[in-house]
Amino acid sequence: MACDAAVPIEKLAEEETLSLGERAYRRLRSSILQGALAAGARISERGLASALGISAQPVREALRRLEKDGLVVTLPRRGTVVAEIGPERLAELGRIRAALEGVAAALAAERMSEDNLVTLAQLVRQMRAATAAADHEALAECNERFHALVQGATGNLFLIRSLEALDAYDALGRPRALGSTPKELPRVLREHAAILAALKARDATLAEARMRAHVLRSLVANRVPSPAPRR
């Protein structure tokens, strides 16, 4: 089963139009998030350029962007290495994501078009079918599209970009297959259906509360500990 709602038509042609720097950035980012480049691994500009069949300049550009993302760091005498991100940092960033996603849901409740609400309802139906089939991959895809649609409906570029900047940490902190236990699958479905109901009701306060609670609970479900209190 696949989640086939809201697939952008232009996606297929997108790769052909990317600059070399953008392609290098995406390839490196994907390698880090998928674990092909482990935390602490040294990154050689020359070696990567050779492996990708491009000059060093696009690789250098990609590494600068990855350093801004917090995925690589430059260390004395070691050069550029993949950053190590501990559980406390991931938990803090998860709380920031929960707050921003809550704001996005509130704005979406006020601004979302009826067509977008129809698409969200379609996604929830597909999530229901994926839950019944225990299809973790399809559920994860629908989840990503659900959240992306809510964020896009805000029309707030700053908010959207801020959430995009957190995507890398989210991918590092949570498994790709949403719902790690049998009990988690129906719970995820119920939460998305409840968020949709609040959006349909144009209840910004309720949509924000439900979205924020959903994101915070997902941190616990995926075993990301809360940061220890400072003394």
Score class of each variant (00 low, 15 high):
E88P: 09
E22V: 08
L157P: 00
M127N: 10
L93P: 13
L37K: 04
R176Y: 06
L100V: 03
G35Q: 01
A2E: 15
A109K: 12
S113W: 04
A193F: 06
A109G: 09
A153R: 00
R230S: 14
D115N: 15
L172R: 11
P186L: 09
S55A: 01
R161P: 09
E184R: 13
P227Q: 03
T74S: 13
I96Y: 05
L28F: 06
G94Q: 06
G70Q: 04
T181Q: 02
R46N: 00
N222R: 05
L20Q: 12
Q126H: 05
Q122D: 13
A165Q: 13
A6P: 09
G155D: 01
G94K: 03
Q151Y: 14
P87F: 07
L163I: 15
A51N: 07
G47W: 04
A153F: 01
D167E: 14
G86R: 14
A133R: 11
Q151W: 13
I9K: 14
S19I: 10
Q34P: 09
R78E: 15
E15Y: 12
A132L: 11
A39N: 03
R65H: 12
R223V: 02
R210G: 00
S30F: 07
A36N: 10
A41I: 03
R161N: 13
A36R: 14
S113I: 12
R65A: 06
A62M: 04
N222G: 07
M127I: 05
L172D: 08
L18E: 15
L163Q: 11
A99R: 11
R161C: 07
S50Q: 13
L172K: 08
G79L: 09
A41K: 12
R89W: 13
V124G: 11
D203E: 10
G152N: 07
S55C: 00
G179E: 03
L33I: 10
V82Y: 03
R161L: 09
V188P: 04
A36K: 10
E191T: 02
A99F: 07
L100Y: 06
D203G: 06
A129Y: 02
N222S: 05
T154H: 00
T205K: 12
D69S: 08
M1P: 07
A133W: 04
R89Y: 14
R230I: 14
E15M: 10
R77T: 14
S180C: 09
T80V: 14
Y169A: 15
A134L: 12
E84H: 15
D115A: 15
E208Y: 00
T205Y: 05
E16M: 11
T74C: 06
A83P: 15
L28V: 01
L163S: 10
P227D: 02
A106L: 07
C3Q: 10
A140T: 08
V220F: 02
E67T: 14
N156S: 08
P76S: 07
P8Q: 05
G53N: 04
R128K: 14
